[in-house]
């Protein structure tokens, strides 16, 4: 059976690129295109392997990156278009990234304001309207999904290759996994990502666990917290408000 799960993990290709730049502590004005392109493409591969819906925009940026990379590799041709001489092929992308980053920050500042019906209330205001089920209404999670994806990568990278050869006869569905996680959460109150996987590190199990967590976060049934960068990710049942 082929599950197709659509999640808006990244806010977009620029968001993913900014994340990679931050993660590698790169100077945005001097992006090592080869490194970033490689990482960007491997993230796309991973998202694809998880059957996550990849918007076409991600591929457009991928081709832009490859194009810039090829331009940088070419030796400057003598006497060719003098106007463009000295123009860094990366500059348009950098401008776009900076602009996006400025708005991303502005969005955070907006969210930090005392919001009506969240932080301040007016007299006898009607109860908050039920949140619509639209896709754009995903909750803000304490652990951003990038971190979950990174944790997932680390676990998959540490897998013993031999184990791939074992044929997994255990029938597991996403629904089963979701129910299992919710059951354990209601018993134990909180649980770590690693606990959930246990020591049975089959690829199938890991992928289902990961998808189940993403799905539960999307449905606002659990919340994920992390102690710090690369820290343990703990899952809690979302408090029904």
């Amino acid at each position: 059976m082929n599950y197709e799960i659509k999640l808006d993990i990244f806010e977009g290709p620029l968001d993913l690129l900014l994340y990679l730049i931050r993660k590698n502590e790169i100077d945005i004005y001097n992006i090592p295109i080869a490194l970033i392109t490689e990482q960007y493409l491997s993230y796309l591969d991973m998202m694809r392997s998880l059957n996550l819906d990849l918007a076409g925009e991600y591929l457009v940026l991928a081709s832009t990156l490859v194009h810039i990379k090829s331009k940088l590799l070419l030796p400057p041709v003598e006497g060719e278009d003098e106007e463009e001489e000295g123009e860094d092929p990366r500059s348009e992308l950098v401008r776009q990234l900076l602009e996006y980053q400025a708005f991303k920050e502005a969005a955070l500042h907006l969210d930090e304001r005392p919001l009506l019906e969240r932080d301040v209330f007016k007299r006898g205001a009607p109860a908050a309207e039920p949140v619509s089920s639209g896709q754009e209404e995903e909750a803000m999670n304490e652990v951003d999904v990038f971190e979950l994806v990174a944790a997932f990568r680390r676990i998959v990278a540490g897998l013993d290759r031999k184990e791939d050869l074992e044929i997994d006869v255990e029938k597991m569905s996403l629904t089963d996994r979701i129910n299992e996680i919710m059951e354990r959460l209601s018993e134990e109150g909180q649980i770590t990502f690693a606990d959930l996987l246990g020591d049975r590190m089959e690829r199938r199990r890991i992928i289902y666990t990961f998808l189940a967590i993403l799905e539960l976060m999307k449905l606002r049934m659990i919340r994920a917290y992390q102690s710090g960068p690369f820290g343990t990710i703990r899952l809690f049942p979302a408090v029904e408000g």
Binding site: D8, L108, L115, E117, A127, P130, E138, M140, G241
Partner: peptide, 13 residues
């Protein structure tokens, strides 16, 4: 209010 505050997603913000 017993209701979840209407939050905006990062995309919406």
């Amino acid at each position: 209010k017993a209701g979840r505050p209407a939050m905006l997603s990062p995309a919406a913000l």
